[in-house]
């Protein structure tokens, strides 16, 4: 039984690859379950997963539209240009 599990279980390289590429959402449900199981048992891979979440959150915060000065002026400029088309 343990042997079968070990054979079916995706490797750390595969698990982290699926997480990073966003492919996990589109793999068969069985594979997704095995990845979850792997993550629940593997401290390294679950650290990797948490770090990816930290990175996404950080860039979401860094790249959110800022109410930069001059945005209103830019908007007026663009609208004026568009009305002339």
């Amino acid at each position: 039984m343990m042997n079968l599990m070990a054979r079916l279980m995706p490797s750390c390289r595969e698990v982290t690859g699926l997480l990073a590429s966003g492919e996990l959402e589109s793999v068969p449900r069985m594979k997704r379950l095995l990845v979850r199981l792997h993550l629940s048992m593997c401290a390294h891979c679950s650290r990797f997963a948490r770090q990816l979440r930290v990175i996404s959150r950080a860039l979401r915060a860094a790249w959110v539209p800022s109410a930069a000065p001059g945005a209103d002026a830019l908007k007026s400029r663009i609208l004026e240009r568009l009305r002339s088309i």
Partner: peptide, 15 residues
């Protein structure tokens, strides 16, 4: 495909 050099570094929930 097992970790040879496991990931290190921050993973704080609070950013």
């Amino acid at each position: 495909g097992m970790w040879a050099r496991p990931p290190r570094g921050p993973e704080a929930a609070a950013l």
